[in-house]
Computed example of a mutant assay.
Amino acid sequence: MTLPRQRGITEQAATAAIDQACRMLRLPTIRAQFPELAESAAREQMSYLGFLSELLMSECDDRARRRSERRIKAAGFPRDKSLRKFDFDANPNIDPATIHTLAACEWIKKSLPLCLIGDSGTGKSHLLIALGTEAAMAGFRVKYVLATKLVNELVEAADEKQLAKTIARYGRVDLLCIDELGYMELDRRGAELLFQVLTEREEKNSVAIASNESFAGWTKTFTDPRLCAAIVDRLTFNGTIIETGTDSYRLASTRARAEQQAVAG
């Protein structure tokens, strides 16, 4: 279909033509914003080039936002967590500078691992999700999964002769976030399958894990000492280890709110 191109068309006709062109060219942001931007350009006596750049940058910015939203959704995070909402004052074990350096994602570009180790309520999962979100916003492909869910999926894939395909799928993402590693004992088969995923990603793509067990306690999760040592090696070599401590700031926050309510009551 050819759009009309003629001089001296009415404003109504021009608006209709722009609307139609935006539909054909799939420019939803320009289609939605051009009337407002056109009025602003007229008020500010903007040049044609200036007005065109405003339109195109609006479309580009909106597309980048939508891509980020798609990557965050594809990551499968269980809840929305951000670094902006993390209370560094509540946990002095965590260095804000280190976390903000990690948020720049250079470690992902270098395919390095990250380990967050500490008791429940110390911020491990919050940081894991928040840093994964930062990576997705920066353009990296991210996948979040609970350790038990990942192992169960691998076992099912092995039974259905789909193991290679499943390992390859987990190997392709730029950052694999494994949460709650160490919460339950894995049998030898489960541990070996997890080891295969880590080996697939070694020095090619980053892995970030959160665990409530120190490395010394991982023998309760991976009962084979040699396999345990190999997994620890895969997850720590040249990586960053952050110990979030033992004091639950979630519990402390709950107690503080209860005390405030008691005083107010």
Rank of each mutant, 00 (worst) to 15 (best):
I94Y: 10
N91L: 03
S68E: 11
L112D: 05
A74Q: 10
A138D: 11
S47W: 10
S111P: 09
E134T: 09
R43H: 09
F77D: 00
L114F: 14
L55A: 00
G123W: 00
S47L: 08
K85I: 00
A130T: 04
G132S: 03
D89R: 15
D119N: 10
G50I: 05
R79N: 09
L127I: 10
L102T: 13
I72H: 03
L52D: 07
T101W: 15
A41I: 11
S53I: 06
L114P: 02
K109V: 13
S58Q: 11
G50V: 06
E54G: 00
D80V: 12
K73I: 07
K124Y: 01
W107E: 01
R67C: 02
K81P: 02
A64S: 13
A64G: 04
E44G: 07
L114Y: 12
V142N: 03
R70I: 03
D61N: 14
L56C: 06
I129H: 11
D62Y: 08
D89P: 02
P92L: 14
E59M: 03
C105Y: 06
A64E: 13
A138L: 07
A90G: 11
R43G: 02
T122E: 02
G118W: 04
A103H: 07
D61G: 03
A42T: 11
T133M: 08
R141F: 13
A104Y: 09
C115Y: 02
F86S: 04
P96Y: 01
F140L: 02
G76H: 14
L52R: 10
V142Y: 12
L114I: 15
K109Y: 14
K85R: 09
L112W: 11
K81Q: 15
S47Q: 02
F51C: 01
P92K: 14
D87S: 13
F51A: 07
L49I: 13
E134V: 08
A90M: 09
K110E: 15
D80M: 12
A90P: 08
L112H: 11
E44I: 10
K109Q: 14
D87F: 01
S58Y: 06
H126K: 12
M57Y: 13
A138W: 04
R84D: 13
L116A: 01
G132M: 06
G132K: 10
A103S: 12
P113L: 09
E44C: 05
E54L: 12
L112F: 13
D95Y: 14
D95E: 15
I72Y: 04
T101R: 15
E134D: 07
P96N: 03
L128C: 08
D95C: 06
K81G: 09
A130E: 00
C105I: 05
E106N: 15
F77W: 07
R66H: 09
P96M: 01
L49R: 13
Q45G: 05
L127N: 04
K85M: 03
R71C: 02
H126R: 12
M137G: 01
D80H: 15
L131F: 05
S40G: 01
R84W: 05
L131E: 00
L128K: 07
L131I: 10
K110V: 13
L56A: 10
D61Y: 07
G121R: 00
N91T: 10
A75H: 05
V142P: 02
K73M: 05
W107V: 02
A75E: 05
R79L: 13
L102S: 04
F77V: 09
I108R: 08
R65C: 00
A74P: 00
G76I: 15
